[in-house]
């Protein structure tokens, strides 16, 4: 099946990756300047939420966009990392940086377990297996004593980063989150542009061929899965610090669906797409919260529209329409 099917249609993705250096640098510069200035214009907690989800969506996109694996269970990594960070910081009194490390490590381990099971099947089965496994994590989170069931872990202290910076200050917290996001994004950028990333793309395009060229594709897929899970965990741990809360919401299948939507809306297989998608979805949700419209219906509707009419996503469409860069 993998040989015939391409989730991404024709290839705006490859173009972004190869994209002209100046354009990309310009985009980076503008984006960075905007991100630094943003907390003076917008509500910092909202921006931090966007950044956390943007990192989460980028991590997810590493799998779907660059390895062709649709994980429908990424909330498991996001949510359980939030629990780990919250528990380590609140109950064990760890410094926030170690809490985040523990969250990332925990998500990586969980990703290893999921990956070992899930990469045995491909395509739709892969999606169903990851969904089922993440539902198992949901039930564990519901039942284990340390997660406090429906209440979640509340009142997580933000603490002092490296013993120096008081994360209780909104601006300090914001710039920390921004730094974490940039670091995570840089890791993804590096991965996609590395020889490892090229092999992943080869697997996405034609797995039997990659095997025949001598690559042990299962190992590559597993490594990509673990990497994606760890970064999703980093995003989840950060979110737990920002909101001082780890709750069941973060491990539900709806959360897994939301990150799929962010990536789909922004553009699967583009580096910036998930960031745009995360920004839009978070904005939309905070807007909808003040109206009487049912959020899931709107989200579902966007899903349907994206799949039927708009499969390249916003950034994908833009790239495809740029003069001189379209095929």
């Amino acid at each position: 099946m993998t040989a015939k099917t391409h989730l991404l249609g024709s290839r705006p993705a490859a173009l972004t990756v190869r994209g002209t250096a100046t354009g990309t640098a310009l985009l980076f510069g503008v984006g960075l300047a905007a991100a630094v200035a943003a907390p003076f214009l917008l509500y910092p907690v909202f921006l931090m939420k966007v950044l956390c989800f943007a990192l989460f969506a980028c991590a997810f996109n590493l799998l779907i966009g660059f390895a062709g694996l649709l994980s429908f269970g990424h909330a498991a990594f996001f949510g359980s990392a939030a629990y780990i960070a919250a528990h380590a910081v609140k109950e064990w009194g760890w410094a926030p940086e170690f809490g985040l490390l523990a969250a990332t490590g925990g998500a990586a381990l969980l990703g290893l377990v999921f990956g070992l099971v899930a990469i045995r099947r491909q395509g739709i089965y892969f999606a169903m297996i990851t969904l089922a496994l993440s539902q198992m994590v949901f039930f564990l989170a519901l039942q284990l004593p340390f997660t406090h069931g429906e209440d979640g872990i509340q009142g997580v202290p933000r603490g002092l980063l490296f013993g120096l910076f008081d994360l209780g200050q909104p601006l300090t917290m914001y710039y920390t989150v921004l730094a974490i996001f940039i670091a995570g994004f840089a890791i993804i950028w590096r991965t996609v542009h590395s020889p490892f990333g090229q092999v992943l793309k080869a697997i996405r395009e034609n797995e039997p061929r990659a095997i025949s060229l001598g690559y042990r594709t299962d190992r590559y897929k597993l490594l990509a899965f673990v990497l994606s899970a760890s970064l999703a965990g980093l995003a989840g741990g950060t979110k737990a610090l920002v909101f001082q809360l780890a709750s069941l919401t973060d491990v539900t299948w709806q959360m897994s669906g939301e990150v799929v939507l962010m990536t789909l809306l922004g553009g699967m297989g583009t580096l910036f797409g998930p960031v745009v998608g995360a920004g839009l979805v978070v904005t939309l949700e905070s807007y909808l919260a003040s109206t009487s419209l049912p959020v899931p219906v709107v989200i579902g509707f966007i899903f349907v529209v994206c799949v039927l009419l708009f499969r390249r996503g916003i950034v994908g469409e833009l790239l495809a329409r740029l003069p001189g860069r379209s095929r």
Binding site: M1, T5, H6, L7, G9, L70, F72, G123, I124, A127, Q254, G257, V260, L264, P294, V295, P296, V297, V298, I299, G300, F301, I302, F303, V304, C306, V307, L308, R311
Partner: peptide, 19 residues
């Protein structure tokens, strides 16, 4: 298209019905 799009579409439909 890739079969995964069918999954994504029906996922959206499920959200709409349930919501």
């Amino acid at each position: 298209l890739d079969h995964l799009y069918g999954l994504l579409l029906t996922f959206g439909l499920a959200l709409i019905f349930e919501g």
